[in-house]
Design a protein around this nucleic acid. Structure first.
Length: 298
DNA sequence: GTTGAGCGTT
């Protein structure tokens, strides 16, 4: 029963999304809601009667009809009276939410005893949640542990929990951190800012704002000058921004492509590339100053 | 055959 996915869509004509089931074959409403915010249940068309049927829901747990989800496409139920409140989410749903799940990333495990094996790591971390991968980094020649390794979990919640605490592994305190190679893996995912590619020169900030307002509240529009054929649009709600990523939208008759805005580098040399006196004096001045780069938006 | 802050061969 494990590793099973059921197919869920906004409505019968939409492309279904696969939602993971639990080990016992049930599906958590929260799993559905992660992909379809605001969802309160599922229904499906009974192949025999051709009528829509509700999926049994008990305390947040969805139970398969006849104990088998089969290959049917299940349709999301939303609270009827909530439609008004769900305006922005509906807009997001209209362009399909593609990356609802928080992606996990490998975590570096620092401070491992030399003797600790991958099996040891697997055994230990499995007490927190389902483990996808463990590694112990070893010297290529000797095979000796370098005293650190990596672990990856299925669920983001597990990852959060594991990072938050210290770990006693085989008699030593170890730390789990996000590796430097992925310094901020979740920021791009949650960004409220989108990159609008293939812009034309006649598109104004006002026009872009007007256009993107239909998806949700726009808090900023930025068009680099001189013209560079792209723009940034920031929404109040990250879900709206994320829902648009990957879409090709038609603005003023031209197809623009929406993608995640890359994190701004917040680099002093990038902000002041030609600072008089060179980068050293700039760095010194920066260090003396009280100035903090904005971190509120990516 | 050692070590103890860090950052990932395949």
């Amino acid at each position: 029963m494990s590793e099973l996915y059921i197919r869920v869509a906004e409505d019968e004509n939409e492309e279904p999304m696969e939602i993971p089931s639990e080990d016992d074959g049930t599906v958590l409403l929260s799993s559905v809601a992660a992909q379809f915010p605001g969802a309160c249940g599922l229904r499906y068309r009974n192949p025999e009667s051709q009528c829509m049927r509700g999926v049994r829901l008990v305390e947040g747990i969805l139970h398969a009809p006849e104990n088998d989800w089969g290959s049917l496409v299940y349709v999301v139920n939303y609270p009827k009276d909530n439609k008004r409140k769900m305006e922005e989410i509906d807009a997001a749903s209209a362009v399909k939410i593609k990356r609802g799940f928080q992606k996990t990333s490998d975590l570096i495990v620092l401070g491992l005893p030399w003797k600790t094996t991958e099996q040891d790591l697997k055994d230990y971390f499995s007490t927190f949640g389902e483990v996808i991968m463990v590694q112990v980094k070893r010297d290529a020649k000797t095979g000796n542990s370098k005293g650190f390794g990596f672990v990856r979990f299925t669920d983001y919640e597990t990852q959060t929990k594991v990072i938050a605490q210290r770990h006693m592994i085989d008699g030593r305190w170890c730390d789990c951190k996000l590796p430097n190679s992925k310094a901020c893996p979740d920021e791009p995912m949650r960004s409220r800012k989108i990159f609008v590619g293939r812009c034309t020169e006649d598109m104004t900030t006002d026009e872009l704002r007007q256009y993107f307002m239909q998806y949700g509240e726009v808090t900023d529009v930025f068009i680099p000058k001189p013209f560079r054929a792209f723009a940034f649009v920031t929404f109040a709600d990250d879900q709206v921004a994320q829902a648009l990523c990957g879409e090709d939208l038609i603005i003023k008759g031209v197809s623009v492509h929406i993608s995640n805005a890359e994190p701004k580098h917040n680099n002093i040399h990038q902000l002041f590339p030609n600072f008089p006196g060179g980068s050293a004096s700039l760095a010194a001045m920066f260090a003396r100053s009280q100035y903090q780069f904005p971190s509120s938006h990516v």
